[in-house]
């Protein structure tokens, strides 16, 4: 697994996190200079993810890195939330900007320990702090990619893209960002080549999907139709995403759990 990564230093990769940190098969010397400051860390994440992975693996400055990545996720997802909220406008901009960072950070906090625990159960020498840093770094990368996509959301609003197409576009953007984040986690854990690393990543994906799905479900809505008269900060606590999916499957088979669909006040007052 590490054969290709333990190769001799390559020219032209810089002196700090470049050539040295590419020797990922063994813990690299902690990069200094580029990547040490918060802005440097973000730049390193965007430009040289191998060096970033080496920095995490070396285990130095993890608290600083964690703080930077948490702040990055919070700011980036607030921007993305505000962009999504702008589809409806008004107070929904603030609501979505507040809720999306909570969704991602909350999901990461609840799910990251699973990566350490599942790997450790199979003999992987996992470290909770390093795993948390890896997950947060990967999510920060995904969040930055989403920020890069926000102009597309604004374009959708500008050309008055219909609600369902906007939903699909949003799902596609999140899928791309999620895939990129997952790939980074995969690379980071694969470098260890320890026992059970694949199972640990699969387990993390399952847990992350379930927790993320439920948390985002609990904090919805984010993208609201422009004509919606009122927007709640949160909807009432009800069944879970799991219940909704099973309910939808039952409805699709013609089995309805209620006599009729709930109608809004306008529809109810209509002749």
């Amino acid at each position: 697994m590490n054969a290709g990564l333990d190769a001799a230093p390559r020219p032209g990769l810089g002196t700090n996190g470049g050539a040295d940190s590419r020797g990922l098969g063994t813990p690299a010397a902690p990069p200094t200079g580029r990547g040490a400051s918060p802005v440097g860390s973000i730049d390193l994440l965007l430009r040289d993810r191998d060096a970033m992975l080496a920095r995490i693996r070396a285990g130095t400055e993890l608290p600083d890195l964690l703080r930077t990545m948490i702040a990055t996720i919070a700011v980036a997802m607030a921007i993305v939330g505000a962009a999504l909220g702008s589809y409806r406008g008004g107070v929904q901009i603030a609501y979505a900007a507040l809720k999306l960072p909570i969704v991602l950070l909350g999901t990461a906090a609840l799910s990251a320990p699973a990566l350490s625990a599942l790997g450790a159960a199979l003999g992987r020498r996992s470290r909770l702090a390093a795993d948390l840093a890896l997950v947060m770094t990967a999510l920060a990368f995904g969040a930055l990619l989403l920020v890069a996509c926000t102009p597309l959301v604004l374009v959708g609003r500008a050309v008055e893209l219909d609600y369902h197409r906007m939903i699909l576009a949003t799902v596609a953007m999140f899928a791309i960002a999620g895939g990129a984040a997952l790939r980074l986690i995969w690379r980071g854990v694969a470098l260890e080549a320890g026992p059970g690393w694949r199972t640990a990543i699969v387990g993390l994906c399952v847990v992350f999907s379930l927790v993320g799905g439920q948390l985002s479900w609990a904090l919805r809505p984010y993208l609201v139709r422009p004509r919606a008269p009122d927007v709640p900060l949160l909807r009432e606590v009800e069944g879970s995403l799991f219940d909704s999916v099973t309910g939808a499957l039952r409805s699709a088979r013609g089995i309805y759990d209620r006599e009729s669909a709930p109608l809004g006040p306008r529809a109810e007052s209509a002749p």
Partner: peptide, 11 residues
């Protein structure tokens, strides 16, 4: 978390 954030026993 998933259990307490839902009111459904199935969840």
């Amino acid at each position: 978390f998933i259990a307490v954030s839902s009111v459904s026993p199935r969840t």
